[in-house]
Design a binder for these strands. Structure first.
Length: 403
DNA sequence: ACTCCACAGGAATTGAGGGGTG
DNA sequence: CACCCCTCAATTCCTGTGGAGT
C-alpha cells in the first residue's frame, strides 16, 4: 500500500516547479543590466525605451523581465512621485493584433469589445491607458504568436506622439522565442519595438550547472543528490536546447523517480530514466495536440515508415493518406493543403523534412520521415478511436512487428 | 535548345464561425 | 432581423524550378 507524505528526497520541491521565480539570476547579469538601463528613463519621469527580448525557451527572458519590472514597480510605489504601472500579457493563444487589443481592453476595462472595428478597439485601449496614467509598460510575452499581424505594435508605442494620449506614456517590452520573428515585421514596427534589443543566448553547460545547483540546494534534502547528477542534467539539456526549464524538469523527474522507488539518493541512473520518460512525453504530447487531418497524415507517414518506404515524397504520402482517409470515411484534403500540414508537422518536430532539388522530374521537392520513435508513435496512434475502429491501428502494429 | 513533368509555394477566394450593431 | 468586423482552414489558380527526354 502506497502512502502519501513520504519524504526523504525533497525538502522544498516548489523550487523545481514551472512557476517558481528565482531571486537571483547571476548568469544573466549583463542582460538584466541592459533591461535596467532601457527602463531607467521611466524612473526619471520620461518614457522607458521599448525593448525586444529574444532567445530560445528556458533562457530566462521572462524571469528577467519580471524581475526588472517588479523592481521598477515597487520602486515607484515607495517613491510616490512617479507613477509607473506594468501590464503583463502573455500572447499565448493570441494570434492577431486585433485579438491582443481586445484582450488588453478586457484586462483593463473588464469587458471584451470583440466585434467592434479595430479602430474603435484601439481607441478604447488608449482611453484605458490614459485612465491609468503615468508610465504604462506593456510586457508582451510570447509576442511571436502575433505573426505578421503587427498593427498594435506600431500603434501602441506611438500612441502619445500621434496625439491619442495626453498624459500617459507607453512603452512596450516584447518577448519572443523566435529569432526570425523580427525579420518578418514591417520595418516601421521593427524600428520602434526593437529600440533596445537584448539577446538571450542559450545557456552553456556550466551555466546550467550553477543554475541547477542553486535549485538543488533549495529543493532537495542535503546530500541526497549524488555528485554526477547535476552535471549530467546540465549536459543533457545543453546538448539539446540549452534550456534551463528542460534541465530543471529533468532534475525534478529524476527526483520523483527516486522518491517513488523509495531510493535514498538521486543517481545518474535516475536522470537517464527521467530523460527517457520526458522524451516519450514529448512525443505523446506532440501527437495529441494535432488536428484530425494531421493525425491521418502522421498515420500515413508511419505506415510508410513501417514498410520502409521513407523518406517519402509528398505524392507518395498523399496517396497513402487518401487510402487511410477512405478507411476511416473521412473526406481527404487536397494535396495542396496536405502539403501545408506536412510542413507544419515538420516545424513541430514530429516529422523531419529534407529539402531536395533535381529529382527524377527536376525541380525541388521535400522528403518526409518520422522524427519520433516509431514504436512509440504506433502505440499513441492506436489510442485513437477512429483509427482502431477502422482496423488501421491493428494493421499498423502488425506491419511494425513484422518488419 | 526546348518542352515537360511534378513538385513548391504565393495569392486570391470562399465559407464557416467567433463576435458585434441598430 | 439584416448587416458588419475579424479569423482561419481549405481550395483554386497560378508561377517558378531544373533535370530528363526529345
Amino acid at each position: 500500500m502506497q502512502s502519501f507524505g513520504v519524504q526523504g528526497i525533497f525538502d522544498n520541491e516548489d523550487a523545481l516547479r514551472e512557476d517558481y521565480t528565482p531571486d537571483e539570476l547571476p548568469e544573466r547579469e549583463e542582460e538584466l543590466e541592459r533591461i535596467h538601463n532601457a527602463l531607467a528613463p521611466a524612473s526619471r519621469g520620461s518614457t522607458a525605451h521599448n525593448i525586444f527580448l529574444y532567445g530560445k525557451t528556458g533562457q530566462g527572458k521572462t524571469v528577467a523581465a519580471r524581475k526588472k519590472t517588479r523592481q521598477l514597480e515597487s520602486w515607484s510605489a515607495e517613491e510616490g512621485d512617479i507613477d509607473i504601472s506594468v501590464v503583463w500579457q502573455s500572447c499565448n493563444n493570441i494570434t492577431s493584433s486585433y485579438a491582443l487589443a481586445t484582450t488588453l481592453v478586457e484586462k483593463l476595462a473588464g469587458d471584451n469589445p470583440n466585434g467592434h472595428s479595430q479602430e474603435q478597439v484601439f481607441a478604447q485601449l488608449y482611453e484605458e491607458v490614459e485612465e491609468i496614467g503615468g508610465s504604462v509598460i506593456f510586457v508582451l510575452d510570447e509576442i511571436d504568436n502575433l505573426g505578421t499581424s503587427d498593427d498594435v505594435l506600431y500603434a501602441l508605442p506611438r500612441a502619445r506622439s500621434e496625439g491619442h494620449l495626453r498624459d500617459a506614456r507607453v512603452s512596450v517590452i516584447g518577448i519572443s522565442n523566435d529569432f526570425n520573428y523580427v525579420s518578418n515585421l514591417s520595418p516601421k514596427v521593427k524600428g520602434t519595438l526593437c529600440e533596445k534589443e537584448v539577446e538571450f543566448a542559450p545557456y552553456k553547460a556550466d551555466a546550467l550547472r550553477s543554475i541547477l545547483q542553486r535549485r538543488v540546494d533549495v529543493a532537495f534534502e542535503d546530500d541526497v543528490v549524488q555528485g554526477g547528477v547535476v552535471p549530467l542534467c546540465a549536459a543533457l539539456a545543453a546538448r539539446e536546447e540549452g534550456s534551463a526549464r528542460q534541465a530543471i524538469r529533468l532534475l525534478y523527474e529524476a527526483g520523483e523517480l527516486a522518491l517513488t522507488a523509495t531510493d535514498e539518493a538521486v543517481t545518474e541512473d535516475h536522470v537517464k530514466r527521467a530523460h527517457d520518460v520526458l522524451s516519450r512525453e514529448r512525443v505523446v504530447e506532440g501527437l495529441r495536440n494535432v488536428t484530425l487531418h494531421d493525425r491521418m497524415a502522421i498515420t500515413a507517414v508511419t505506415h510508410l515508415e513501417c514498410t520502409e518506404e521513407t523518406p517519402a515524397r509528398t505524392k507518395h504520402i498523399y496517396e497513402q493518406y487518401r487510402t487511410i482517409c477512405d478507411g476511416v470515411e473521412l473526406d481527404p484534403l487536397r494535396q495542396r493543403s496536405l502539403r501545408d500540414h506536412l510542413q507544419e508537422l515538420a516545424m513541430q518536430g514530429i516529422l523531419e523534412a529534407t529539402h531536395r532539388t533535381s529529382g527524377l522530374q527536376g525541380g525541388d521537392y521535400y522528403e518526409f520521415e518520422l522524427n519520433t520513435d516509431l514504436g512509440m508513435t504506433v502505440d499513441v496512434l492506436a489510442e485513437n478511436a477512429r483509427l482502431s475502429e477502422a482496423g488501421i491501428a491493428d494493421s499498423l502494429r502488425m506491419l511494425y512487428e513484422s518488419r
